[in-house]
Each structure stands twice: as C-alpha cells, then as structure tokens.
C-alpha cells in the first residue's frame, strides 16, 4: 500500500501547484499530471475499466482546457482584503474537514467493504446476463436506467454548448454574418 500513499501525496502536491502557480498553461498541465496519477491509482485499486476511461478522458480534457487558455496572457490579480478572505476560507475548510472526519468513522474500514448487493452480482452475473465483465453487466443490464440518465445528461450538455457557442441571433443591424458553420 506504499505506492497508493505515494501516488496520493503526488496528487496533492500537483493540485497545490496547479492552484498556486501564476501561469494558466502551467496550471492546466499540472491538472493533467493529477489526472494521470489518478489513472494509475485506479489500476492499483483493481479497476481496469476506470483506468482506461480515465486516461482517455484526461487527454481530451487537457486538449479542451489548453485550447481555452492558449495565447491569452492575463495579469494575476491580487485584490484587497487578502487576509480576511483567506481567513474565512480556511476557517470554513477547517470546519468541513472536522465534520467530514467525524463522519468517516461510520464508514467500514478501508479494505473491508460492505458487499451486500455485490455478492449477488458477483455470484449470479455470468449465469443471468452472460457477460464476464461484471462492470459491463452492471451498467448495461442490472442498472441500465443509470446509463439512460447519463446519456440524457450528456445530450443536454452538448445542446448547452451548441447554444452557448452559436452565432445566430447576436447580429446587429446592417451586419451580415455568414452561417457556413452551423
């Protein structure tokens, strides 16, 4: 379990650098390292499906974030009342950490999960669905409603982006915009 701790500490250091660095492109690259370390942690935690999906999604997320930040030099603004704002934020996070660590005591210990539902899936999945990958049989057979809802959310996000980005309806009087892209 030493590798798990090492990767977690690496993720925290990468996240702190990503938050505190001034250049936006450096921040985005640091987020990329955090995501790749997360993919390796998924592999250690015996979840190969999640590892494959995470490493692929991370690359696409990195491309989108880099396209957003390229060639935009921005001044780093430190506004007034630095001490008050930081104090309030740190106090709130301290309260949150205390309450969450109290709540963590109710969870089962690490490495001994509650397997009430999953025992049934693990013993009966091959007989009932015929798929030998249990994750696939859960997301597409036992709990397919979840996947249907996920498809709905993805569709809504795509429609939202196309509505935010599109050009129709924003032209002024006398201005003609060619709509070859829509």
């Amino acid at each position: 379990m030493v590798d798990l701790y090492l990767l977690l500490i690496f993720m925290i250091i990468g996240a702190v650098i990503a938050v505190e660095v001034e250049d936006l492109l450096s921040a985005v690259v640091c987020v990329g390292t955090v995501g790749l370390a997360l993919s390796m942690i998924f592999l250690i935690l015996k979840a190969p499906d999640l590892a494959i999906t995470q490493i692929v999604v991370e690359i696409l997320c990195l491309i989108i974030l880099i396209r957003a930040t390229l060639k935009k030099d921005l001044p780093f603004s430190t506004s007034g009342r630095w001490l008050l704002n930081t104090g309030i934020t740190v106090g709130f996070i301290g309260i949150f950490l205390y309450v969450a660590s109290q709540a963590l005591k109710e969870l089962p210990a690490f490495g001994h999960p509650l397997m009430k539902v999953s025992e049934t899936y693990l013993t009966d999945a091959v007989k009932q669905t015929g798929a030998t990958n249990i994750v696939a049989s859960i997301i597409l057979d036992y709990r397919a409603y979840d996947t249907l809802g996920e498809a709905t959310v993805l569709f809504t996000a795509v429609i939202g982006i196309l509505a935010v980005v599109r050009r129709i309806g924003r032209k002024k009087q006398g201005e003609i915009i060619k709509e070859e892209d829509e």
Partner: peptide, 28 residues
C-alpha cells in the same frame, strides 16, 4: 473480487464530468 457497484457508478460519472467541464470552458 473487489466491489463492482461503485466502479460502475464512477464509470458514468467520469464521462459526465468531461461534458460539464467542456460546458464551463465554453461559457468562460
């Protein structure tokens, strides 16, 4: 085997998080 149910839930959440991140980037 490890518990397969949270893995199945996380698998959908990863893809949704990418779509919502892209929506935030578009607004920005």
């Amino acid at each position: 085997m490890v518990d397969a149910l949270p893995q199945a839930l996380v698998l959908t959440a990863i893809v949704i998080s990418l779509a919502t991140t892209a929506l935030l980037v578009g607004i920005a």
